[in-house]
Amino acid sequence: MKPKVAFFDFTGCEGCQLDALNLEAEDLIDLLNGIDIVNFREVMTEKADNYDIAFVEGSITTEGEIERVKKIREQAKIVVALGACACIGGINCLKNHVPMEEALRIVYGKDAHYYNTIPARPADAVIKVDYYVRGCPPATSELVKVIKALLLNKKPDIPNYPVCVECKMAGNICVYEKGQTCLGPVIRAGCNAVCINSGRYCWGCRGLVDEPNIESQKDILTKYGLTAEQVIEKFKIYDTCSEVLK
């Protein structure tokens, strides 16, 4: 019996779902041999409320979304958070730094009173999440890795070490050596240091490792010339700051 799989979207750009579809045709066929996709708004009109595995994408930003994600949890045997917004809150959490009324006014202007919103949060702030497919967007290969692990009934090999490990494996010159700063030393690897490989630095989209040494990372950022505010800003983009500020 193939497991029934559903994809649900909450607040986000839906890029993660799009990326999920970015499989080679051959792999897609193999994937569909292993699972039945029963609910995936972005690609199909059919809908079924009977599923075993639910992928939830996006962060939770309204009361309605809280109810909806709770229902999904009740139905699904396994819930997987898909992408940075669902896993750690992500970019949506930038609004949490201003009062909600202010956020509504900035976005919707004079129509703000039509809408309501709550501070953005990751899926696991509301429900229990079994697995995480991290990243903004997650690498298709990582999604596939997690699906394969679920089918084999084993824990997915998602590293609990920082990006530095994969960055060194890639043979990169450290971002700090170039006089810039980077969140690599505290952010969970698994991305193969893709941003640094392409000449950028780590923004933190995969969230913190289990035991990040935040104090040391702050010291290093300060040593490399950042002010305390800039350090927080650095962690803000994907909301690793809420963990950092704890």
Binding site: Y161, P162, C164, V165, K168, M169, C174, G184, P185, V186, V209, E211, P212, N213, E215, S216, Q217, D219
Partner: peptide, 13 residues
């Protein structure tokens, strides 16, 4: 080792 990031950079290089 208080400031050790457990980032593995030392062993990777």
């Amino acid at each position: 080792s208080i400031s050790c990031l457990s980032c593995g950079s030392c062993v990777m290089v």
